[in-house]
Simulated scan of single mutants.
Amino acid sequence: MTLTAEQFRTTLDRDTEAEMSRLLASSRTISYDPQTEVDWDAPLDPALHGLNPQWSTLYGTPLWERMSHEQRVTLTRHEVGSIMSTGIWFEMMLQQLILRDQYRARYADSEFQFALTEIADECRHSLMFARACTLMDVPHYSPPRYVVELARGLKTVATGEIAYGCILVAEEILDVMQRDWMRGEDVLPVVRTTSKIHVVEEARHMKFARHEIREHLRESGRFRRQVAAEVIAGSARFIVSSMVNPGVYEAAGLDREEALAQARANTHHHNLMRMSCVHLMDFLSDAGLLTRPAMRHYRAVHML
């Protein structure tokens, strides 16, 4: 029986070769080729947004109320482009983390084969997001230099539950956002389709990450869990704070400082972020990775 993306997201992990085989079999039957699934030649409707307006960092603020429809469309297209660019940046790290973890794995095992399948998926996703940004005429948005350099160190040394914890955090947050975007009637078709592809295929990736975290923590002590919780939470803080580049506001013809101030104080967006992290926080708590120090990081970016 073929499981849906939602069933993959909610079913319990089991430490069996059969579980990994099932994930691998699903990747063979429910996968997409963005080059053919997305209508790249369709003209962009000038009235459609890049993401659901409710997901804009300025939605509900006084500044949003003053903006023209054209400005709102431009802003949301640049916001989704910035999020996609951040996704590409993180997927580059993700691939290196998985490769290092599987370096000495048994090649005949389904776990190894699914790990490489996930890497192949991420390559396609990165190319898909890059092409979507080009189509929307969105420039390359990059996280701040200090975040890029900190991440360079993390991807070089992180292993086990820390590596898969960072992977899970980034995937879970984007998953909830894209579930809304793919159903948004006022969202560009290219964003709706790329979101659907990502949601379906990332459902397997999140299941795999949760499985690997549990496996690596199976015999871990309290100190190891505390360290892992702190590093994962700190990474989440940097990822979330880097998702929307401040340059998106200038692209929409807004005053950068005014827009940043209102975005930072936007309780509507803060509530959406907390909502998107409910399943993630439940899992981290069950795994012993939601410590008091870690909670401070999550609260700082409104994930908790």
Rank of each mutant, 00 (worst) to 15 (best):
R124E: 05
I162C: 03
F112C: 14
R124I: 03
A158D: 09
E149A: 06
D137V: 15
I119M: 15
A115G: 09
T193L: 04
P139V: 08
D180V: 10
E149R: 12
L127G: 02
D186E: 15
Y141R: 11
S195T: 04
E118S: 14
R152S: 10
E171F: 11
R145P: 13
E171G: 08
T159S: 14
G184S: 12
T194W: 05
S142H: 10
P189L: 13
A120W: 03
E149P: 00
A170W: 01
A132F: 15
G165F: 02
R152T: 05
V187D: 01
T194M: 09
E172V: 13
T156K: 13
L150D: 09
V176K: 07
L127V: 07
V138G: 13
D121H: 05
V138S: 12
E118M: 15
R192C: 03
R145F: 14
V191L: 14
M177H: 06
D180C: 10
D186C: 09
M136A: 06
V147T: 13
T193H: 05
R124V: 04
F129D: 01
P143W: 07
Y146G: 01
E171Y: 05
S110E: 12
G165K: 01
R145Y: 13
V169Y: 00
R183V: 05
D121M: 11
A151D: 05
L154Y: 12
G160I: 09
L150A: 14
A163G: 07
I173W: 04
C133T: 02
P143R: 01
P139F: 11
L174A: 08
Q178V: 01
Y141A: 06
E161M: 01
C133P: 00
M136W: 07
G165E: 03
P189D: 12
A151H: 10
V187Q: 00
A170R: 02
V138C: 13
L127R: 06
V176H: 07
L127C: 01
I167Q: 11
A170P: 00
V157D: 01
R131A: 12
P144F: 13
T117P: 00
Y164A: 04
L135C: 05
V176P: 00
C166G: 15
M182I: 05
V148G: 00
M182K: 10
C166P: 01
P144D: 14
M182W: 09
L168D: 06
A120E: 02
E111Y: 00
E172A: 15
G165N: 01
R131C: 11
W181F: 14
I162V: 15
L150H: 10
L174G: 05
R179Y: 04
L188M: 07
C133V: 04
A115K: 11
R124L: 11
V176T: 14
I162S: 02
L168V: 09
T117C: 13
D137W: 02
T117K: 10
V176Q: 12
T159P: 08
T193F: 04
D186R: 09
E111I: 02
G153K: 05
E171I: 09
G165R: 01
D175Q: 15
E161R: 05
P144K: 10
